[in-house]
Design a protein around this nucleic acid. Structure first.
Length: 811
RNA sequence: GGCCGAGUGGCGGAAUUGGUAUACGCGUUCGACUUAAAAUCGAAUGGAGUAAUCCAUACGGGUUCAAGUCCCGUCUCGGCUACCA
């Protein structure tokens, strides 16, 4: 008989699947399954950036998880949608173009072709008819359309904002291009430069994005990260009057606090150095020092500002009035107060806030206790930030801090100087990139700088090819160099007269953040080639939302953005659901055999295609990566263990092709294995599902396998090792319908009873299940010499646990 | 500093959620086959001890008839976050 030859059978089955379009799902409304009884399942991985290096083992792990589920559900006769796509915009292609002059368009095409070929060699059950690519005009036409929908509702807008700027390369840098405060290309320290930027108003959805996290079937880790990212805090906004300010515009300073209950303990105010009111608060005496401090802080890089944990600051020369005590308190500026959060100003309560305490100590400012900590409190720090009863707080003395938080706000509200306020750490999503290789923002400007959206019927705004891909020194992308593209004539409504006029407009040269392109691709999949809409209404109703989404990255960014877009489009009546992903699986990384991250520079990269070509084949690779450990944990590659999995598949082969069928009755282990594998796949315990199959095969080797045993084995194996399993099923003349188990086979006639004395195992014996009772077991147990030995001084208590077949005697 | 997760053989990891700790795989050792090696097949494999038995799930306590699992404290590692008022 032939030996197990993965090369041969894998090629054979890949050809068959391609020819038969085995994994094709119903495309549009006409095509959708009428049969409502067959449930649908929509599975996807986070689509990859197709780099020139091709697939790596991390991709294989990610995609195999999806594939196992897709094949498993398909074998269970469900309607499975398992598409694939490429996230192709981005810096690597652009940098490659700058270096080589090869256009990103063409490099991307080459890379996709390579990726597709490799994916096919892994035997993934992909519906290739709906392959998508974000840099395809057919696709980004609809990304631009999405942008316009947000624009129409005021959720895409422009405002001035600081951007990273490299003074040597004369270009704007994305956050990820800034490494420890330095430009990733030339190593120059980067600066912040104020520029007009596009934003999406994700903050409008902050509350819903937060509230809906609870109900998600997502890993807690991600849920917590998203909650922290949104960073909602409830508190109050309080206005402090500036003393002796007269009728000046800056008479009141607004602060945000989560502890309004401590307002009587506010002994000074601190403003962020950038705070616009600082200039009105300085006096002739302090001006020089304040100006110096402000320039120094602004000059400091973010890194320096973070490094220097010691508090710094200067007194402005002005005072504010504490609304509780009526006392005058000094106003300071310090870089520990951030302009971007709350009001950019705080009331400092040094007795009950550690940062304020530190600041007060350093500059010798008064510290006034307003909370009496409860006697039970073990906290013996000088600064107490817990709960307690108020003291030194006028009419609120004796009130609990929790109640006081409400009362203080009510009291301030009556005086018109305070109100409840909620703030978020999350900011609006900055989406403009001064990059060539991205989706053009469909906006143009007239000579006065007025914005005009490109009408939907004129989409897509195509990316023009250029000669030189370098950004120019104005901070604009290389798109600005495409002169023919840059200016054009369009009929628009004149902003003043309201009449239709033809105007010469200049296009926006910023492109969209790549995350915008990936914020809606899951919906494109349901009708990948739909010509007249981003997604087909009927198809989306049938397939979406995504049932299982698998990835290893983008815990907050991408996974928050798709939730935001989903809620937005649901509000426009374009999506019939408010959360895009039901179950999220977040898989771990695969590290090099030494446990370190794989990297080209370290030379420790394992190429999955090499593993296949070494002779192991795709089935071994897939099965190994599922066996390597729990899917959500990082794992180190172990070349020896790959061999172990290959041996296992080889044993499956031998059992099927090289041995005679036996008549042995293996119903028990067969049914137990079906149950274990089925339940484990449902729970995503892929590693233990494979263990169970190994045990099954070991047993069949010992006692001999019947034809039925082998059919079951092949069916269970198919999601993991589809080529081998298909070959086995072909020989056995069986379909691949997922098997069910019969509980009656799992109940044995006899069971092993365990007898413990004081919790330690002292005897084991077989017993007929029908005779299993406390008395019978105890009687048998006491016949045992060992048990007698340990119970010489009598038995105080007997515990019988039927479900564990266990008797514990307390002696 | 804060929040979260983890710590089980030589290694990757199992353990029905409080009920026989160490499944499965790797490695190692022995044996079979072979002129030999590889491959394959079979057996053994937490530690100590001749043995009965004892000791082992990071460490120290506790709850319980019974703890890897629950509670309290300590240590170590990993992730995220970083003056967010």
């Amino acid at each position: 008989m032939d030996r197990y030859n993965p090369q041969e059978i894998e090629k054979k089955w890949q050809k068959i699947w391609e020819k038969d379009q085995t994994f094709r799902a119903a495309e549009d409304s006409k095509d959708l399954p009428k049969d409502k009884k067959t449930p649908k399942v929509f599975l996807a991985e986070m689509f990859p950036y197709p780099s020139g290096a091709g697939l790596h083992v991390g991709h294989v792990r990610n995609f195999t998880i999806v594939d196992v589920l897709a094949r498993f559900y398909k074998q269970q006769q469900m309607n499975v949608l398992r598409p694939f796509g490429y996230d192709t915009f981005g810096l690597p292609a652009e940098n490659y173009a700058i270096k080589t002059g090869i256009s990103p368009q063409s490099a991307t095409k080459t890379n996709i072709n390579n990726f597709r070929k490799q994916l096919k060699r892994l035997g993934f059950a992909i519906d290739w008819s709906r392959e998508i690519n974000t840099s395809d005009p057919e696709y980004y036409k609809w990304t631009q359309w999405c942008f316009l929908q947000l624009y129409k509702k005021g959720l895409a807008y422009r405002k001035e904002s600081y951007q990273w700027w490299c003074p040597v390369d004369q270009t704007v840098l994305a956050n990820e291009q800034v490494e420890n405060g330095h430009c990733w290309r030339c190593g120059t320290e980067v600066e912040k430069k104020k520029m007009k930027q596009w934003f999406f108003k994700i903050t409008d959805y902050a509350d819903e994005l937060l509230a809906d996290i609870d109900a998600l079937d997502w890993p807690d880790k991600i849920k917590t990260m998203q909650r922290n990212w949104i960073g909602r805090s409830e508190g109050a906004e309080i206005s402090f009057e500036v003393a002796d300010a007269g009728d000046a515009a800056s008479k009141m300073i607004k602060v945000f606090t989560t502890r309004p209950d401590t307002v009587f303990g506010a002994t000074f105010l601190v403003l962020a150095p950038e705070h616009p009111m600082v200039k009105d608060l300085v006096t002739d005496d302090t001006r020089e020092k304040v100006d110096k401090y402000r320039t120094e802080t602004l000059k400091k890089s973010e890194i320096e500002r973070q490094e220097n944990k010691e508090k710094t600051g200067v007194f402005t020369g002005s005072y504010a009035i504490n609304p509780g005590t009526g006392e005058q308190i000094p106003i300071w500026i310090s870089d520990y107060v951030l302009m971007g959060y709350g009001e950019g100003a705080i009331m400092a309560v040094p007795a009950h806030d550690e940062r304020d305490f530190e600041f007060a100590k350093k500059f010798d400012l008064p510290i006034k206790k307003v909370i009496e900590k409860p006697e039970s409190s073990k906290d013996d720090d000088e600064c107490y930030n817990g709960e307690g009863k108020l003291v030194n707080s006028g009419h609120l003395n004796g009130t609990d801090t929790s109640a006081a938080r409400e009362l203080v706000v009510e009291w301030l509200e009556k005086q018109g100087i305070g109100s409840k306020k909620v703030t978020y750490k999350m900011r609006d999503w900055l989406i403009s990139r001064q990059r060539y290789w991205g989706c053009p923002i469909p906006i143009a400007y007239d000579e006065d700088g007025n914005e005009y959206p490109i009408p939907e019927d004129q989409l897509p705004v195509i990316i023009p090819e250029v000669e030189d891909y370098k950004p120019d020194n104005s901070g604009r992308s290389a798109l600005a160099k495409a002169k023919d593209w840059l200016t054009f004539e369009m009929e628009v409504e004149d902003k003043k007269t309201g009449k239709k006029v033809k105007k010469t407009l200049t296009r926006e040269t910023d492109t969209l953040d790549g995350y915008a392109c990936s914020s809606w691709y899951l919906w494109r999949y349901v009708s990948a080639h739909c010509k007249d809409a981003a997604w087909d209404k009927e198809a989306i109703k049938y397939w979406a939302p995504t049932d299982v989404y698998v990835g290893a990255d983008h815990a907050v960014a991408h996974l928050l953005y798709i939730r935001f877009w989903c809620k937005f489009f649901a509000d426009q009546g374009l999506l019939p659901f408010r959360e895009p992903v039901k179950t999220l699986l977040y898989n771990g990384y695969i590290n090099a055999p030494d446990g370190k991250k794989m990297s080209k520079s370290k030379g420790n990269v394992i190429d999955p295609l090499d593993v296949i070509d070494q002779g192991y084949g795709a089935d071994t690779l897939r099965t190994y990566e599922m066996f390597i450990g729990p899917y959500d944990l990082d794992a180190a590659w172990d070349p020896k263990s790959v061999g172990g999995v290959y041996r296992f598949l080889n044993r499956c082969w031998t059992l099927c092709f090289d041995k005679k069928f036996e008549k042995h009755d293996n119903a028990r282990i067969r049914n137990a294995t079906i149950k274990k594998v089925t339940e484990d796949i449902h729970k995503h315990n892929f590693n233990t599902a494979i263990s169970a199959m190994m045990e099954y095969v070991n047993e069949l080797y010992k006692v001999g396998a019947t034809e039925e045993d082998l059919i079951i084995l092949a069916k269970l194996l198919k999601p993991f090792a589809p080529h081998l399993a298909s070959e086995m099923l072909e020989k056995l003349g069986s379909d691949d319908v997922w098997p069910t188990w019969d509980e009656k086979h799992l109940v044995a006639d006899t069971v092993e009873v365990v007898v413990q004395v004081n919790g330690k195992v002292r005897a084991k014996f077989e017993m007929n299940k029908s005779e299993l009772s406390e008395e019978n077991v105890k009687k048998r147990a006491l016949e045992d010499k060992n048990v007698q030995n340990f119970t010489k001084n009598g038995i105080k208590k007997t515990i019988f646990v039927e479900k564990a077949n266990l008797l514990n005697l307390v002696a």
